[in-house]
Amino acid sequence: MFEQELSIGPLRMTLRASGGRTRGALRDETSSVGWDLAFRKVPGLGEPLSMLPSARLLDTSVPNNKLVSPFPVAACSGSLEWDGEHWDLDGWHGMQGHNWGSEHSPEYAWGQAIFTDTGTGEPFAVMEGASGRTRIGGRVSPLISMLVVRRGDDAYRFDRIVDLWRQRPRLDFPEWSLHMRGRDGTATVRMIADPAQMVCLAYRNPARATSYCLNSKTAAVSVHVAPVNGNALELRSAHGGALEFLVPQPVPAVQPVV
C-alpha cells in the first residue's frame, strides 16, 4: 500500500492512495496558526486528474511545468486555530494538487472549483483549467490552454493544447476567462477574484528569476459546457473557486507578499 511521510520543521504530511493528513503550527511576533487536517478521496469525482492529453507528456521536457491533481475532490475533517479563533473543518471539501518541472511557466492562470448540491452539500461536479506559456527552443510560446470538467459520471476534456485556433484565453487580472472547442463540444469558463481577498506568494523559480503567484481561494466562477451529444450544463459558485495568476512582479493591490 502506498504511503509517504513528509516533514519540514514543525510541519507534517502523510499521503496515501486514499487520502492524507497534514498538521503543524507556525508562530511569529504577531500571529499564530495551527492545524490538523485529514482528507479522503471522494469516489468518482476525486480520482486523479491530469489536464494534459497524454500521460506520456508527464515524462517529456515540454511543457517544462507539469501538474496533476492526485485528489481533485476530497472530503475534509479536522480543525484550524488562528490567533485563538477555532475553525471546525468537518464536512468541508477541498483538493490536493501537485506540480513540478524544470521551471515555472513564464505566465499562467490556473483555476479550480468544486460544485456542491445546495441541499445536501455533497459535491456533484469539479472543474480544473489553465492557460499559460511555456519555453520551446529558447522562445516563449503563445498562451496554451487545457480544461477538464467532471459532472457525475461524465467527463468533458478540452486538452488539444496545440489547437490554438480552438481556444480563446484571456488573462486580465483579477479575471481569467477561457473559451474552448474540442471533441467533446464547447466550454466557456470565467473566474474573477477580489484582490483584497488574495495573497501574493513569491515562487523561487529553478531556472529563472523569482515569480509571484497572486492567489485566491474565494473566486467567483461560472462554467458553461455544450456537449456534442446531450444537454448543455451550467455550473456556478459565488466564492468557491481557487484562482492563481503567475506574474513577474508583485501587484500592489494584493497584500501581503509572502
Results as ranks from 00 to 15, higher is better:
M1C: 13
L6G: 05
I8D: 13
L11I: 14
L11R: 12
L11A: 15
L15R: 05
G19F: 03
G20P: 13
R21H: 05
A25F: 15
L26N: 03
L26G: 01
R27K: 15
D28A: 15
E29D: 06
T30L: 14
S32D: 05
V33N: 01
W35C: 06
W35I: 05
F39Y: 15
F39D: 01
R40G: 15
R40K: 10
K41Y: 12
K41V: 08
V42E: 02
P43S: 13
P43R: 14
G46K: 12
E47N: 06
L49S: 07
L49C: 12
L52R: 04
L52F: 14
A55N: 09
L58G: 05
D59E: 08
P63W: 10
K66H: 15
V68K: 10
P72D: 11
A75K: 14
C76S: 15
G78L: 03
G84S: 10
E85H: 10
H86S: 05
H86L: 06
W87Q: 12
D88P: 02
D88F: 03
D88K: 01
L89K: 04
G91H: 04
W92F: 11
H98N: 08
N99T: 08
E103D: 15
E107P: 06
W110N: 04
G111Q: 10
Q112W: 04
A113C: 14
I114N: 00
F115E: 02
G119T: 07
G119V: 09
T120K: 06
T120W: 11
G121P: 04
F124A: 06
A125D: 02
V126G: 00
G129N: 01
S131R: 01
S131T: 03
R133L: 02
R135P: 05
R135H: 07
P142A: 08
A155S: 13
A155Y: 01
D159Q: 01
D159N: 01
I161T: 11
V162Y: 10
D163C: 09
L164R: 14
W165K: 07
W165T: 10
L171R: 04
F173C: 10
P174R: 09
G182R: 01
D184K: 01
G185V: 00
V189A: 01
M191G: 02
I192R: 14
D194T: 04
P195F: 02
Q197W: 12
M198V: 09
N205I: 12
P206Y: 10
P206T: 11
A207Y: 06
R208Y: 13
R208F: 11
T210E: 15
S211A: 14
L214T: 02
L214A: 03
K217T: 14
A220S: 11
A220E: 11
V221C: 05
V223Q: 02
V223H: 01
H224C: 11
V225E: 00
N229Y: 05
G230E: 07
G230H: 07
N231L: 11
N231S: 12
L235G: 05
A238S: 13
H239E: 10
H239S: 11
A242S: 10
E244M: 07
P252H: 12
A253P: 03
A253R: 15
V254A: 04
V257T: 15
V257G: 11
V258A: 05
